[in-house]
Design a binder for these strands. Structure first.
Ligand SMILES: [Mn+2]
Ligand SMILES: [Mn+2]
Ligand SMILES: [Zn+2]
Ligand SMILES: [Zn+2]
Lengths: 145, 145
DNA sequence: TCTTTATTGCAATCTGTTTGCATTTACCTT
DNA sequence: AAGGTAAATGCAAACAGATTGCAATAAAGA
């Protein structure tokens, strides 16, 4: 059911394996590679009957972010969005996002990026410790038809 | 005092030249090339005595954004930030931002960008109408010492 | 099973922002 | 220079997303 490495990571961090946490993770897993808000998670979890409070979802997301199981994005205005980091994301994670202006879906774009060149220019100008985030928008392939 | 083209733009849009609007613009002008929040604008305007309501500042910023005199950014978490677009910004504006992790200052980086290459790759994959925003962070030259 | 400590639910609180509405103001007409 | 009109304002109330305090609960180790 839940991938083992997730369980391991939570335990290794000294966090308990609680019901709200399992529920949140399950939703995030189903939503792999996409972003989802706390409220959307809440609604998915509680659509039949209320089994978990919104507060706990926020707290869970915060904890999971701290142990780098979850990535939070304030990028797209509105409510913060979250996604489960994949096992490999966790090692060399890099943030390129695409938001479709039509369907609103946020997609994580994998692959190399050339912003590094840009960063090198900035280093020459006295900036340091650089990191970056890139947000693209437009029409996604399915809305493009 | 106020640059003429700003006045012209406001009139051309059919907006009235009101006191709150003039006050906000004056603050934005002084803050050229930097971002500032509604609340900071409020405090600057009213530091001696209250001359303008926060609501009007929000409404002013929204109006000015609509006529593209102001750019709003929800980029950096926290409160939205605004800046006055320069005359030339208005024509080929491009958004590259740098936020210093130390002093918190947000800087607008001018200059060309190579993300266009990235966009070209995406076009081949079926995306269209692409635009992008790039956020960099790290230490600015002054905090780097 | 017992004990300890983290985690939970709930209500209250917070911050940033927006809205409704009565009053005022800019500015166009006379 | 006054007057009329629609736009813009101030104030209070509402809003949304998120956070906090606290007493009750439940997970994990003994
Ligand atoms: Mn990159
Ligand atoms: Mn660019
Ligand atoms: Zn789409
Ligand atoms: Zn700095």
């Amino acid at each position: 059911m839940d991938e083992q490495w997730i369980i391991d990571k939570i335990k290794a961090a000294g966090l308990k394996l609680t019901r709200p946490r399992m529920l949140v993770i399950e939703v995030l897993r189903q939503n792999k590679n996409g972003f989802i808000s706390a409220d959307e998670i809440f609604n998915l979890i509680n659509h039949k009957e209320k089994v978990c409070d919104l507060t706990s979802i926020y707290r869970t997301l915060t904890s999971l972010e701290e142990i780098q199981l979850v990535e939070k994005s304030d990028f797209f205005g509105e409510a913060s969005q979250y996604r489960l980091l994949s096992h490999q994301d966790h090692y060399h994670h890099h943030h390129h996002y695409f938001k479709c202006n039509e369907c609103g879906k946020i997609e994580v774009l994998c692959g190399d990026c050339n912003v590094v060149q840009y960063e090198n220019d900035l280093k020459k100008r006295g900036f340091s410790n650089l990191s970056h985030r890139l947000e693209l928008s437009g029409l996604c392939p399915s809305c493009n038809k």
